[in-house]
Design a protein around this nucleic acid. Structure first.
Lengths: 217, 217
DNA sequence: CCTACCGATCGGTAGG
DNA sequence: CCTACCGATCGGTAGG
């Protein structure tokens, strides 16, 4: 107990947290390219100029490292996509900003392998276990968030009453994920294509298309 | 040379081909779940009650095994999706059969991990090399095939002139791939959702909606 | 096709 | 946080 206090006092806990964050940042980047199974503790240590056991000690098992990486990526996703969209007024404009923020997040790219969740969701979709569950939960949360944004836009009368929130969220999500091809083909035009598809779909259901951008970029 | 002839005569080459096909069938099934990197020669041998070197000898390297598996999966895809659609008359009906055959292929499922190409395309999208190239080429061929089906339907006057083939192919392909969620969430309703999305999109562009199925199933 | 092996790397542990 | 190690498994080879 005294030791913990001492550790805090001399900054060791703070340094430990910074190291942990540095590990997770690198882990998420690697996993977006190589997958969460392809992510190895030895390689991670090598890239961070640390020892294997030094990395290992922060998590206790590979599965815990994977789970912590999923949680970290989720925080990045919220900061990059959800938070920026909250600056737009609720309703259709926020729904659109959500779509646009996703495109920016995927195309910048924030993770070198494109959207972290698009990559690992496919990797774990046919595997059982806690990591798969955590990925599925994060993915579902994003789809629910999109769906709720549709519901809100409809409540505000900015989408027609016959817009099916679950169906529309599915379609918008499908367009975002299809942009993963940009990496495989090294062709960025797919982001424009996704943007056009989303805009076209929303325009058809909008009561006031003026709330959406004018031209397909 | 004489030896080769003898081998043919006593059926060894035929048996070799059968073994090779059995290996590739299993390899494609494993890879759709674990990925083409997660596919190991040792595990493959174990599942086939063979020895590691017995499997290895058929391909010479892991990369050649991966390439042969991609070619095999491509043949399966053609037999399951392209060939059935050719029974429909050219134009909008064939385009629709193509979409429907894809849904059946993915949902049956032909591969335990869903669509083989949807799985490995994401796995290899940020990696260089021959395997990635082969996957990209197969994926592109499917998109081109969809696009050509759109062009043909438009030439026959069954789709309006303003239907953009590349854009429409992108959107239909996006809906097919979003069905991969069915495995992650263990929820088959996503196939119905994809079907509805495709049908809705095609109806809006069809000059005679009577060529498409009446009700969204 | 087999057994028997190679060096490298994996996740994880012991002891400090 | 480190070095040094464990058994298991990887892709690949030798020799038959």
């Amino acid at each position: 107990m005294l030791k913990v206090t001492t550790a805090k006092a001399d900054g060791r806990v703070v340094r430990g947290d910074q190291t942990r964050r540095a590990i997770l940042e690198r882990a998420a980047a690697i996993a977006s390219v190589e997958g969460l199974e392809g992510l190895s503790i030895g390689r991670l240590a090598g890239e961070l100029d640390s020892s294997k056991s030094g990395v290992f000690a922060h998590f206790g098992s590979k599965e815990e490292l994977q789970l912590a990486t999923v949680r970290w990526a989720r925080e990045v996703f919220v900061a990059e996509v959800i938070t920026p969209a909250l600056r737009a007024p609720a309703g259709l404009r926020r729904l659109w900003r959500l779509c646009e923020a996703w495109l920016e997040y995927a195309s910048r790219p924030v993770f070198p392998g494109g959207c972290f969740f698009a990559s690992v969701a496919v990797e774990f979709d046919a595997r059982p276990g806690r990591v798969s569950d955590a990925i599925a939960e994060a993915h579902r949360a994003w789809q629910r968030y999109l769906e709720e944004a549709v519901v809100r836009a409809r409540e505000l009368g900015e989408l027609t009453a016959d817009a099916d929130p679950r169906q529309l969220a599915f379609e918008l999500d499908a367009f975002t994920r299809a942009t993963q091809d940009a990496l495989l083909f090294e062709e960025r035009s797919v982001y424009t294509r996704a943007r056009r598809a989303m805009l076209h779909r929303l325009r058809a259901l909008a009561t006031d298309p003026g709330l959406l951008p004018k031209s397909p970029r």
